[in-house]
């Protein structure tokens, strides 16, 4: 489902545009809501195209997200005067400035808003994994077994997609659309390469994201490059190490 994430990152743009028109600024909650709704709508469209029109999933994804993105860019240009959002933000993200952005006061401590929303996302994520984790795991690795166990994989899948949409939306401002995909896929891939069982996968994935954030930060600092890309590149370096490790251990399916 990795590329559903890619599709979602592109499809949230019209939601953001709409949210901006309603809310008036980059910090408005409408933005997040609009983006999440747009992402969800795109996923539903993909499912519709896949089931009703019997399109293959990759073709359905291709049509759906390009259409959504096109609507978003058009909206950006048509309402450019009212929207202070430049298209670069969609692509480059703004990790460098997110810390300086809106801050919330928390008992005499000033905390960047992005930190709060990120922390919130973590809490939601942990809860979601606790509730749905087993279903998702079984559903991912053995859908038939999942159905036998009575896990309606339809509902669990919908929750997973919804959660992905929300994650992407909250990541959007920080790292930009296209790199959000990397943050979705790299840690999990690293985990799969290194660990044998699901808890191990999750731990390695978490470790990977922390390590790539750290190394990426230093890379961006010293080389003066875009922070989000630096983190993706660092993440890839770690991924290559994991890849080498998995090859040494015996290659495919080890």
């Amino acid at each position: 489902m990795a590329l559903a994430g890619d599709a979602i990152t592109h499809s949230v743009l019209p939601g953001i545009v709409a949210g901006f028109l309603l809310g008036g600024s980059l910090d408005s909650p409408w933005l997040l809501l609009g983006a999440a709704l747009a992402g969800l709508a795109c996923v539903l469209l993909i499912e519709f195209l896949h089931h009703t029109l019997a399109l293959r999933e990759d073709a359905a994804t291709g049509i759906a997200f390009t259409t959504f993105f096109a609507v978003g860019v058009l909206g950006l240009r048509l309402f450019a005067s009212k929207i202070d959002l430049d298209p670069d933000c969609v692509i480059f993200g703004s990790l460098e400035t997110v810390v300086h952005g809106a801050r919330l006061s928390f008992r005499s401590m000033q905390v960047p808003a992005a930190f709060v929303s990120g922390a919130g996302a973590v809490v939601v994520g942990v809860l979601a994994v606790m509730v749905f984790g087993r279903r998702w795991t079984i559903g991912a690795f053995d859908p038939l077994h999942a159905r036998c166990l009575g896990f309606e994989d339809g509902r669990a899948r919908a929750v997973l997609l919804g959660w992905t949409a929300m994650m992407v939306t909250s990541a959007f401002q920080s790292v930009g659309a296209i790199l959000a995909v990397a943050l979705l896929v790299q840690p999990g891939a690293c985990g799969l390469l290194v660990a044998r069982r699901v808890p191990g996968v999750l731990i390695v994935a978490g470790l990977h994201s922390v390590l790539s954030a750290l190394c990426g930060f230093y890379l961006a600092w010293f080389a003066a490059i875009n922070a989000a890309s630096a983190m993706v590149l660092a993440g890839f370096a770690w991924l290559c190490i994991a890849w080498g490790y998995s090859l040494l251990r015996g290659g495919r399916g080890a």
Binding site: A2, L3, G5, D6, I91, F92, I178, L179, V181, A182, L184, V185, Q186, A189, N226, A228, S229, A230, V232, L233, F236, L239
Partner: peptide, 12 residues
């Protein structure tokens, strides 16, 4: 997803 984002990140 991995290849796409890594190359794009390099470009960026």
């Amino acid at each position: 997803g991995i290849v796409l984002s890594v190359f794009f990140a390099l470009g960026l």
